[in-house]
Design a protein around this nucleic acid. Structure first.
Lengths: 212, 212
DNA sequence: TTAGAATTCAGGGAATACCCTTAGAAAATA
DNA sequence: TATTTTCTAAGGGTATTCCCTGAATTCTAA
């Protein structure tokens, strides 16, 4: 059985690149290539692909919205998100909205084929480094992770307010607590995050993914 | 006479895509493909291309620096910058540092060939929309873009020192300048990055990849 | 060579952050 | 219930940042 593949990408070079990569693979056939979201929505039902390689950064439609719409139309279709970015929050959103796989655009032919086979089996395919990141991220939140400080609810709120560049007074107004209490939380944040000042709080918090 | 072409891009798909695009064109021959800056610098002299299609966003070397280095080595070589971004400030910088052309990655085959011919004649090639943007820019809309803050050497040094959680005094000791000078740089950083305080400087700098 | 950046520095004051300690009340947990 | 953690808040400082103005020197690109 030949797998029918469609590709959506506004970069012609990427389209040609994938076509070339798959040209000598007998198990697959490219049944459609689209340059944007609207073209994809118009033609995908007629082309009936088994898998769609979908660039998330399209000129016309937000990738996640597009993903949702396509899945609604064709629930059987497997979608592999294709992008340059490896933002964890983004990966999570796209995977929660219909995508079955996530590939970076520097993918080699072998990995592309592996990804296709995996999603066709009904499994999820993620590149190794993305998988690792997701793991770390998942473990970081609910569990006691010795590498990432775990903050109390209030500390988290103060942290976010500091990240918004608010002053102690402004934070106290926002959270309806005394400025002195805000200072206490700030001191505790410094201690927990190993920072010498607010700059360090924000730097470490961002590196540990405590913000977003 | 056959034109010798080399390509530098860390995305295999782009490499394959360009190869495919040029495969049926007799006037050109691809003599080398490189995945990063160092590979390019190592091999380009031996491959002797007439034109280099150079992705500006490489994993290892800053595109502009790389461009300078290559031109120093091979002054005859024509370089066409290849990228996803159409930031005017960026276009100007790269064109002022050795590139002869600027193409977006959504370029079609016809335009690619046209660009190659143009730069080989010794002229500059820019895509139409980039050309228009440059025109508009030159005609008097100096809208400074908050997304592309470009920092001076000293500002970058002060930025990095702030990120190290140093105080003004400590930074002044480190850089052998007066604390007052450090404050001036800090103020300019706030202004350039649209920040209200040092926390904002670091937050925006990290988001824009000005640190690391 | 000449205008524009970039770098340097200063005074002085207001605002804010930093740092220590202490401690009661509320909430979560064992 | 008892214990721990969290949240609250204060006094009383010192250190640092923030903000304004103004200005000389050096570098750099047209």
């Amino acid at each position: 059985m030949i797998t029918r593949i469609a590709i959506t990408d506004d970069h012609v070079m990427i389209l040609r690149g994938i076509e070339t990569m798959l040209a000598n693979t007998k198990e697959v056939e490219i049944v459609g290539t689209y340059c944007n979201g609207h073209e994809t929505l118009r033609n995908i039902a007629a082309d009936k692909p088994d898998v769609l390689l979908l660039d998330i950064n399209l000129p016309d439609i937000d990738g996640i919205e597009l993903c949702k719409k396509i899945i609604k139309k064709m629930p059987e279709l497997k979608i592999i998100a294709l992008t340059n970015f490896e933002e964890i929050s983004f990966v999570k959103r796209i995977l929660n909205n219909g995508a079955d796989g996530y590939l970076l655009k520097n993918t080699q032919k072998i990995e592309l084929i592996k990804a296709l086979k995996t999603v066709l089996k009904g499994e999820q395919y993620l590149q190794q480094n993305i998988r690792n990141k997701l793991m770390n991220h998942a473990l970081g939140k609910p569990k006691h992770n010795q590498f990432s400080a775990n903050l109390t609810r209030r500390e988290q709120e103060v942290l976010e307010a500091i990240a918004e560049e608010l002053t102690t007074q402004e934070i106290s107004d926002k959270l309806f607590i005394s400025p002195k209490t805000v200072e206490t939380h700030r001191m505790n944040l410094m201690s927990k995050l190993g920072a010498k000042n607010s700059v360090g709080i924000i730097k470490n918090a961002m590196e540990q993914g405590l913000l977003d």
